[in-house]
Each structure stands twice: as C-alpha cells, then as structure tokens.
Amino acid sequence: MKIIKIDKKEWEQGLDKSRKEYHLFGAVKDKDYYLIQALGDKVYPDMESSDTILSPKSVIFPQTEKMLTANLDEAQDNHHIMERVETDYSPRAVLGIKPYDAKAFKILQLNFDTEEFKDPYFCDAYAATTLVGLAVNNPGQFDFSTSVDTGPFDETDLDVLLIDTGNEYLAKVITDKGENFISKCGFDNQTDEKNALETISKLKKKAEKAIVSTVSHDKLNGKTILELYNAPFWDDIAFSCINCGTCTYVCPTCWCFDIQDETKDKSCIRFRNWDTCMSRLFTEHASGHNPREGKTQRVRQRFMHKLKYFPDKYDQGLMCVGCGRCVKHCPVNIDIREICEQMNS
C-alpha cells in the first residue's frame, strides 16, 4: 500500500491538475448548509465541512435520473422504440467523502450490481467514480458508525483515504482508481509507511474513542422476523411520524426508486426518482388496495428493512452506516438508535 503525503498548500493545485481528466465533486457551503455539488472552476471542496444534509449517493444514484427516451412521431422509423439516454460517464472524483458514506456504496451495490442483475446506470456511474475519503478526526455526536461495523477511518469502498494530520494530508492509496487520481493530481510524495500508519492508528483510536453514540444490535439476529414484526412498540414509535420521506432521502443506503414516463408532443422520456417507503403511494396497488395502508406499517417497514430483513437476507450487517443523518433531520425526532435498542432488547 502506498501512502502519499500531501501538503495542504498544494492540495488545491493538485485538484486543478486533476480537472483535466476528472469532474470533481465535494461539499460546498451555500446558504447555511453543506451540499455535495459538482465543483466548477476554482471551486474547491470544503474539507473542514460537517456532514452534508444529503449523502453523496446522488453522485452515482441521482434523485432523478433519465433512463430511456423514445420519439412518438410515427413519421420517423424509430418511433416508439425506447433508447438509452446518453449520459456523460467520464471520470469523476468525489472529494472528502466520509468513510461511512463510502461504505454505503458497498450496500447500494448489493442492489444495483450483482451477479444476476446489473443496473447499467449505477454500474457505469460507479465505474467512472473515484471515491476520495477523508477520515473523521472529530466525530460528531450523531455519528454511531463504530456500532454498525463502519468507523471514522473505515476504508471500505474507498479508493483513497485522506487523513488530516494538521498541515498535511496522508493519502492512503487503496485501489488502482485511487492511484490514478492521485497521480493525475501530481501528488507523489510517498512517505514512510510505518510511521504514517502509526500516526494514522493514533488518530484512529482517538477518533473512535470520541464517538459517544452507540447502538446495540447483537440480539437482532437471534429474534424471528415475526417476533419483531408483531412487537408491541410500533404504534407508539409511529405515532409522531408524519410520513415525510426525509429519513429515506438523507440516508446513504436507501436505494428504492420509482420509474416514471413523461411525454410531451412527440417525445417521451422514462426516468427514475428516489422513492420512499414512507409514502402511502410506495405500495399502493392499481386496485386501490394497499398492503401498507397505515403509517405504523410503513414506519415498521423502514426499520425492519434496515435492521432485520436486510441483515437476514445479505448477511452483510445492518443496512445502516451510522451517519446519523436521519436522527438529525427527522422533523419529529424519530431516532433509529432508540428503535434499534427497543428491537434488540
């Protein structure tokens, strides 16, 4: 493994070099909050940023994504034939992504990129993307990543992990993609691996210790689905829920989407949008019947999916990376940690 030392003074220069080949994405503060955005010329990611409201999943899995088009003009030969939308899949790099947000892509892959099914839009975007993570030295109070098999220095699915050591970044180059990006930036100050790893290890321990928020889920595996499904607490949990989709939209691991067609005049597009299991429409049948008619069923579905169905099906841990966004942004303070504890007890 290569570890490159990057002087922070050279950071932006390096990024500018990479722009020849990469579209850059990173956290930018506009108004009063941070969002992941495509970075225009001379715009650099805010590496000191707290969490972005939305996770970086939109870089690979946008909220609205055009899939197919067709023309309906019968005078033309290809009328009514769906064709894939041409999308720019040239290389892109997401800078300063938090380790838990990167791990989330691993979870998304379980849905979009499997032996059996490959979602071309996701796969092409994923292939084009280099994830440059930044280890979290000072975890916030919502961060419970260590409890869910992630952590502030987790390297899962990252191509490069940057560690902030004050005046410089230590860049752990994890994959070939990462290697390519770092070299395109012109960062080549390879450092002594042992020393670097020691520094990193210290910082990592300090960071992990700083995480105050935890959640226990050890007993979930031992409980049956029905036991949890029929648990008495769902009505009380769901009472305050207003069924907005905030938790699902801010979540880095929520992958559900809905496909829509829109036509105007002679043109038609098919696109997909993030969907949310909090919406009544999510499961409404054409007949009008809805298996998840009440909000209790919908709230239960979300937590059962994340904490029980998913772990049972994939054996890859919880469908949660511990970022705490849903806890922070839920307008009525429904807290997944609390619910997980309830389910676990």
Binding site: L54, Q63, I242, N243, C244, G245, T246, Y249, T276, S279, R280, L281, P331
Partner: peptide, 21 residues
C-alpha cells in the same frame, strides 16, 4: 428534495390523496 415534510407537517394537509400523488 420533494420529501413533502412541509406538507405532512401541516395540519391543513389531510387529503386522502394529495394532488402531487
């Protein structure tokens, strides 16, 4: 992000099916 939290937090919005749906 069209989460409709504004709508859902609003006591006035109680239609069984909202026009957006």
């Amino acid at each position: 992000i069209r989460c409709y939290a504004c709508r859902n937090a609003c006591p006035l919005c109680y239609c069984p099916t909202c026009f957006v749906d």
